Simulated assay, not measured.
Amino acid sequence: MGRILWGIIVVLIVLWLLGIVLKIGGGFIHALLVIAGIIFVIQLVTGRRSL
């Protein structure tokens, strides 16, 4: 599960950066990135670290 989360986070960061550079889909990608970040922080706080 941890590898999948890391993969999603990396893909979202790349898409977010492309959205900033190309000015497309920035709001949607930003929202997904924030959600992925919140999930990551929750996993760190609860101790579910399967990195």
Results as ranks from 00 to 15, higher is better:
L5V: 07
L18T: 04
R3S: 10
L12T: 03
I24P: 00
W16R: 02
V41D: 05
V41A: 14
K23W: 14
I24F: 13
L51F: 09
W6V: 03
I35H: 04
I20A: 02
I9Q: 12
I8P: 00
I4R: 07
W16C: 01
W16H: 09
V10H: 06
F28V: 10
V41C: 08
V14C: 01
L17G: 06
G27L: 15
H30S: 15
G47Q: 10
I9C: 11
L44W: 14
I42D: 07
R3E: 09
I9M: 14
R49S: 12
I20M: 10
L17S: 06
I24L: 11
I35L: 15
G7T: 01
M1P: 00
Q43V: 06
V14T: 07
R49A: 07
A36H: 06
V41H: 08
T46Y: 07
L5H: 13
G37F: 06
Q43H: 09
I24S: 07
H30C: 15
I39N: 07
G37D: 05
L32V: 03
I13P: 01
L18Q: 04
V45H: 09
I13T: 12
I20D: 01
G2F: 00
I9N: 11
A36D: 08
I4L: 04
L17E: 07
G7H: 01
I20E: 09
R3L: 11
G26C: 04
L51Y: 14
L32H: 10
R3G: 05
L44N: 15
A36T: 02
H30D: 09
W16D: 02
G7S: 03
L32C: 06
L5P: 00
R49V: 11
I8Q: 09
L18G: 02
V11K: 01
G27W: 14
I42K: 07
W16S: 01
M1I: 12
L17R: 09
F28M: 08
I8N: 07
T46Q: 11
G7A: 03
L51T: 08
L33P: 00
G26D: 04
L32Q: 10
R3D: 06
G27C: 06
G19A: 00
L18S: 04
W6C: 04
V21F: 02
Q43N: 14
M1L: 05
L44Q: 15
I8M: 07
H30N: 13
I39H: 12
I39W: 12
F28D: 05
R3W: 02
S50Q: 10
V11I: 05
V10F: 11
L18E: 03
K23I: 15
V14H: 02
V21T: 05
L17P: 00
I38H: 06
G26L: 11
L44E: 15
L5G: 02
T46R: 11
